[in-house]
Every structure is written in C-alpha cells, then in structure tokens.
Design a protein around this nucleic acid. Structure first.
Lengths: 133, 133
DNA sequence: CAGAATCCATCAGGATACTG
DNA sequence: CAGTATCCTGATGGATTCTG
C-alpha cells in the first residue's frame, strides 16, 4: 500500500480491457448503437425506415454497418423476393440483451452531463488564461 | 400490432441514442477505456506507466486522450514540480462509476464471444459460396 | 520525465450514379 | 426498394524530433 511504483503489467488491464475493446469496436460504432436500438425497439425494420430514422447516415455507411452487425449475429436479414424487393432486419436475442448496458451508460451520461459540461468550461477557462499569459 | 409500417420518428431513438453517443464518443474511444481502467484500478498513475501499460499506444495519442479525459473531468492531473518532473493522473468518482457499465459490457462480451465467432464463420462461409458461384 | 510540434500515410466516410 | 460501385476529401493517428 505504501509502494505504488510497482510496474503495471499488461495482464492487469488486458482481461477486462480486451473483450471490452472487441465489443466497443463492433457494437459501439457511431451508427451501430442507433441501428441496434431501432431494430430492438421497432421489431423487424426495413432498410429505408432505418435510413430515414437515423439522422445524417449515408446509404453507404448504413449498408456497411448492417453487414457488420449481420455478420456478428446481432441482426438477421430477411429478404422477401417480391417486386419491389423487401428486406427486413431483426435484432437477435443477443442484441436485445445489449439494451441494459446501453441504458446504464445512458443513465450515467444523464447523471453527469452537467458535471461534464462544467468541467469542460472550467478547463477551457484555465486554458484561455494560460494562452493569454 | 398488425400494422408495422408506421413511420419511425427520429424522437423515438434520439432520447436514448443521443446521450449514449456523447458518452461513447468521449469514453469509449480506442484508448479511453484502457486509460480509465488503469487509472481506476491502479490509483494515481504516471504518464510513463500508462505508456508502458497500454500496448501499442503512441506518445501522441496518449497525450491527446489524457487531455480529453482531463477536460471532461474524468481524470485529475497533478504535477509535482520536482526534477525530473512527475505527473500523476487520478480517476475521479465519476470515472470510477463507469466501471460497472464496462463490466456489464465485458460480461456480455464473454457470454457471447463464442456465438459471435460462430456467426462470423457461418457468415463468411456463406459469402465464399456466393463468391464461388 | 512528460510532453509539444511537425510531417506524413492511411482510411473512414460522404456524395453521387448505376442496377436487379 | 435495397442495395453496389466509384470517386474524393478530411480527420485519425503513427513516427520522429525538440525542450523545460
């Protein structure tokens, strides 16, 4: 307890940081969260509904992200060979389980958003003073 | 319940997706997670300890990420005006509260890592077949 | 030791046009 | 409708050098 200059071995952080990293990469991308939330809350959802429901997403990124989520087994893609074609995306059970974690993070965000904003202002003020030196 | 062609209004996803986005941006960056976890578990930690403890991080990215976390009030930076200089980073209470959410996500990751790997293999196999057409 | 500053490669991602 | 293909640009981030 007195000695804190002990080396930090990579293994200390790895077992928790590594799986988390993997998850965040595939699940916490800018668009993945919104797609998953929509797919979870809106049941089977169509390509165009997603495109309209997610502000600012490009057709390209929607396609790429959907493919990745499908590959990871978070979404199921169902094609109805009608004309015009109809494709629906359904969240799997696995994806639905993410909602809890997302909501916990959202709660944390809400709880601390003011504190964060304050911290940022305080920090920026300090920088201004230094810059004005 | 029969009608699912209802429009998806942006407000349906916004209230939860927006704060989450903010959080993920500032907290779920490639390096932020590892830095926070190290700072939380290793008490006050020095620049060089972080550099050695996080595999593959560059000096530049470590500095940039530390600045951002400090600005957001997740880390406190303490300078000891000795020679050579000594700087320590301490996780704030706010940052420590994140551990729960991180661990929940980590648990999710561990629970489903096999299923995800399987899904990916299955998906890739399907693609190969198509490519071979 | 703990950075700041600079240069440079990569690549995520947007806009647009085309198609089964 | 639900994509694919192509082009192009800005931001991300690594490597390196310099300094109090």
């Amino acid at each position: 307890m007195s000695q804190r200059n002990q080396r930090v071995s990579p293994e200390d952080v790895h077992p928790i940081a590594c799986p988390i990293r993997e998850i965040f990469d595939r699940v916490a991308g800018k668009w993945s969260v919104q797609i998953i939330l929509l797919a979870v809350s809106k049941g089977p959802i169509r390509f165009t509904e997603l495109e309209r429901g997610i502000e600012g997403i490009s057709r390209r990124m929607l396609t790429l992200t959907l493919r990745q989520l499908e590959r990871d087994g978070l979404l199921v893609r169902t094609v109805y060979p009608t004309v015009p074609p109809r494709v629906e995306y359904t969240a799997t059970e696995m994806a639905r389980e993410l909602r809890g974690a997302f909501e916990q993070l959202a709660a944390w965000a809400v709880r601390h958003q003011d504190a964060i904003a304050d911290a940022q202002r305080a920090y920026d003020d300090r920088q201004e003073k230094v810059a004005a030196n």
